[in-house]
């Protein structure tokens, strides 16, 4: 009953039509590029710093004692709360970067910390007896142990990070962002636009996942 009434639930045809019409405009691409830049830089920072933090938590017990409560708080706090808090502290264009970073960081840190903890104890004993240096141990034992978990988690974190980043854009409406266009379309009851931008978010999410899978496949190949 609702389908076909463009203001409530537009037809797939009109959504695709609007999507392709928007794709012919410069602001659409500018918003896409800037949203991607913001969210992916937050994601990259979250992956790198999360991995380093996870490793530091494993190898340096005081770091673990210091950051474990922080990670628990971050993991259990609703993303919307963080977005609203960040809104008072940092600029609207930096919020999606920060929020994505904040969502990805604990996922990657936990993954690295847990998988380092699962390193084969018998092999660790062997490296101790044969006095194998930390560098060699890292390359031949720790990294091969962590890598499969790390790559899988990086893929999961990408989806989470992307969605959190878009949510942050919707709530903070930085200029030239997918989130702002989504928010505006809701405000002006342009439901077709809402669906068209949602379609864009889904397409980018799938494309990112595919690209990362390919990249991770290469990394796995090199590491094997």
């Amino acid at each position: 009953m609702c389908v076909g009434r463009e203001i409530i639930l537009p037809t797939p045809l009109s959504v695709f039509g609007r999507f392709f019409a928007l794709a012919k405009t410069a602001p659409f691409w500018k918003a896409t590029a800037l949203s991607l830049c913001r969210i992916m830089s937050g994601y990259a920072a979250g992956v790198v710093i999360g991995a380093l933090l996870g490793a530091a938590m494993y190898f340096v017990p005081p770091v673990r004692a210091m950051f474990s409560p922080f990670l628990t708080v971050v993991k259990s706090t609703p993303v919307a709360s963080f977005i609203l808090i960040a809104y008072f502290i940092i600029t609207d264009t930096a919020i999606p970067v920060f929020i994505t970073f904040l969502m990805v960081l604990p996922m990657m840190a936990s993954s690295v910390f847990t998988s380092l903890g699962s390193t084969d104890k018998a092999l660790l004993e062997m490296t101790k007896v044969y006095k194998i240096s930390f560098g060699k141990k890292l390359k031949t034992l720790y990294i091969p142990t962590v890598l499969p978990h790390f790559l899988g988690q990086a893929l999961t974190a990408l989806g989470f990070g992307w969605k959190a980043g878009i949510a942050a854009e919707v709530l903070c409406t930085p200029r030239n962002s997918i989130g702002k266009y989504l928010y505006d379309s809701k405000t002006y009851l342009e439901t077709v636009d809402t669906f068209a931008y949602t379609l864009l978010v889904i397409i980018i999410s799938l494309a990112l996942e595919k690209c990362l899978k390919k990249l991770l496949g290469r990394v796995k190949g090199v590491a094997a």
Partner: peptide, 24 residues
């Protein structure tokens, strides 16, 4: 300097035989 041959082989699974030996 003490060398230990464990009851189980304890070779690193990601390395070849040569690399395992070369490690020490």
């Amino acid at each position: 300097k003490v060398g230990y041959l464990f009851q189980e082989h304890r070779l690193l699974p990601s390395l070849t035989a040569f690399e395992n030996v070369r490690l020490v």
